[in-house]
């Protein structure tokens, strides 16, 4: 008699259980909240008051400490949404669908924040709020992809159907991510090249990129907090008929 082999680690199957996911996220939330608060407050004070000003751009350069973390997060969040959507498609894992759905509004607001701070930074630096540049345009497409995913979720009533369509759209839109990344290399652009590269030390001075790193970590922790809060809500709604939810609510 052959037993079905377990290819995936145990936590992968545990994640498939809404109740286990709800509990583990509840345990992780306080730590991430403290970390997000700490990194964001320290990073903001450092960025605004202590980081040196740029010799060309002066103090408008300080916008980078919002602009880069939000742009990085908007893209990571998109990749997470697409991967979670794919897991939902392949393994029919409900929790993965809920994670994907919860990613969309956070990513959309992050893309919007990156575009808004980019425009505000562009005005004193380039003399214009907006240019139809490759980097800016591909980032705008990212925002539209997020809005498309959100629209699909609100338009399709059947939850499984909505998750499937949104996952397909997210996966197709994944081609936009390398386009955003390499847009500054492939096309002539006003936008400056990437600040952080995995292979090289940043071209910026240490006292400039260190607070940026703190802000990026803070944004990721904030993302974890918001994502877990939304996913837990989604679990409660979809599992409302389960006995463990009734028990949990009954205690309140």
């Amino acid at each position: 008699m052959s037993e079905k082999k377990n290819w995936m680690p145990r936590w992968f199957y545990q994640l498939a259980s809404p109740r286990w996911s709800y509990d583990i996220m509840g345990k992780l939330l306080p730590g991430f909240t403290v970390a997000a608060l700490l990194f964001l407050v320290v990073g903001t004070v450092w960025a605004l008051a202590f980081a040196p000003s740029d010799y060309q751009q002066g103090n408008s350069f300080r916008i980078i400490y919002i602009h880069v973390p939000s742009a990085v997060l908007a893209q990571s969040c998109y990749m997470m949404m697409a991967i979670a959507g794919a897991i939902g498609l392949i393994w029919k894992m409900k929790v993965a669908d809920m994670v994907a759905k919860s990613c969309a509004p956070i990513g959309a607001t992050m893309a919007l924040l990156a575009l808004a701070t980019g425009a505000i930074w562009g005005k004193p630096t380039w003399g214009s709020w907006w240019v139809w540049d490759a980097r800016l345009t591909s980032m705008l497409i990212l925002l539209f992809l997020y809005l498309g995913v959100i629209a699909l979720y609100s338009a399709i009533e059947n939850e499984a159907m909505a998750a499937k369509s949104a996952a397909v759209l997210a996966l197709v839109g994944l081609v936009n991510i390398p386009i955003i990344k390499y847009s500054v290399d492939w096309w002539n652009t006003l936008h400056q090249p990437a600040t952080f590269k995995l292979t090289e030390r940043p071209a910026m001075a240490t006292e400039m990129w260190l607070p940026l790193l703190v802000m990026v970590i803070g944004f990721y922790c904030f993302f974890a907090v918001s994502l877990m809060m939304r996913t837990r809500n989604e679990i409660l709604v979809r599992e409302r008929r389960a006995s463990w939810v009734k028990e949990l609510v009954g205690k309140q």
């Binding site: 509004p105 924040l113 505000i120 904030f222």
Partner: peptide, 22 residues
């Protein structure tokens, strides 16, 4: 902010609003 106060503070204000909303 060396004359760029409006741009810098507006950016940080929008960021705060977006994070709080989320």
């Amino acid at each position: 902010m060396g004359g760029h106060g409006f741009y810098v503070w507006l950016s940080y204000a929008i960021a705060l609003i977006v994070i709080v909303i989320n």
